[in-house]
Amino acid sequence: MIDLPQNRYALRHDPDDTWAIEDIFTGQTAEVNDVPQEGLDMEIADDLVDLLNLEYINRRKGTTH
């Protein structure tokens, strides 16, 4: 059994002094409903990365619908 990382998403500080959510597996900006998650304030990005990682963990466990 392969031991996958617990988190899939990370914060990225962009040159324009905003924040984005990065998919650590692909290196690409994460998307929610086809909207790239970039240009965010730090507080919003931090909350969103936590939510996306929780969803990813639950999906791997099979506990989401």
Score class of each variant (00 low, 15 high):
H13C: 11
H65F: 11
R12N: 03
D50E: 08
L4T: 05
E31A: 11
M1E: 12
W19R: 03
H65P: 13
R12S: 08
N58K: 13
R60P: 04
H65R: 14
R60E: 11
A10G: 06
L52C: 10
Q28T: 01
D3V: 07
R60A: 09
P36Q: 13
L52Y: 14
Y56M: 02
I44N: 07
M42T: 05
I57T: 08
V49D: 09
L54Q: 09
I44R: 12
L11Q: 06
L11G: 05
T63F: 10
R12W: 01
R12K: 14
T18G: 04
Q37M: 14
E43R: 12
D23R: 01
L52K: 08
Q28W: 01
T29F: 07
N33C: 10
L52M: 15
R8Q: 14
E31I: 01
A10T: 04
D17I: 00
F25H: 09
D3M: 08
N53A: 14
W19H: 02
D3T: 07
E55N: 15
E22F: 00
L40H: 03
N53D: 15
N7E: 08
Q37G: 05
F25Y: 04
W19Q: 02
A30I: 04
D46H: 08
K61S: 10
V32P: 00
Q37T: 05
V35K: 11
K61A: 11
L4I: 11
T29S: 06
T63W: 06
T63Y: 02
Q28G: 02
T64S: 12
A30E: 12
T64G: 04
D41M: 08
R12Y: 06
Y9R: 03
G27Q: 06
M42R: 15
G39V: 02
W19A: 02
L54A: 07
N7C: 07
Q28I: 03
P36H: 04
G39I: 04
T29P: 00
I21R: 01
Q28P: 00
A45H: 05
M1T: 14
L11P: 00
Q6P: 01
L11R: 03
Q37W: 03
F25R: 13
P15W: 00
L40A: 10
K61H: 02
T26F: 08
F25D: 14
L4H: 11
T64M: 13
D34G: 00
I44C: 09
A20I: 03
Y56H: 15
I2M: 13
V35R: 14
I44V: 09
Q37S: 12
E22L: 12
E22N: 00
H13N: 13
R8C: 02
K61V: 10
R8F: 00
Y9E: 06
H65C: 11
D3H: 04
N33M: 11
Y56G: 01
T18Y: 04
M42C: 15
T26R: 06
G27W: 01
P36I: 07
G27K: 04
L51E: 06
P36D: 08
T29W: 05
N58F: 09
I21F: 05
L54H: 00
Y9C: 08
Y9S: 07
D50V: 14
D47V: 12
M1C: 13
I44T: 09
T18M: 09
N33A: 10
V49E: 12
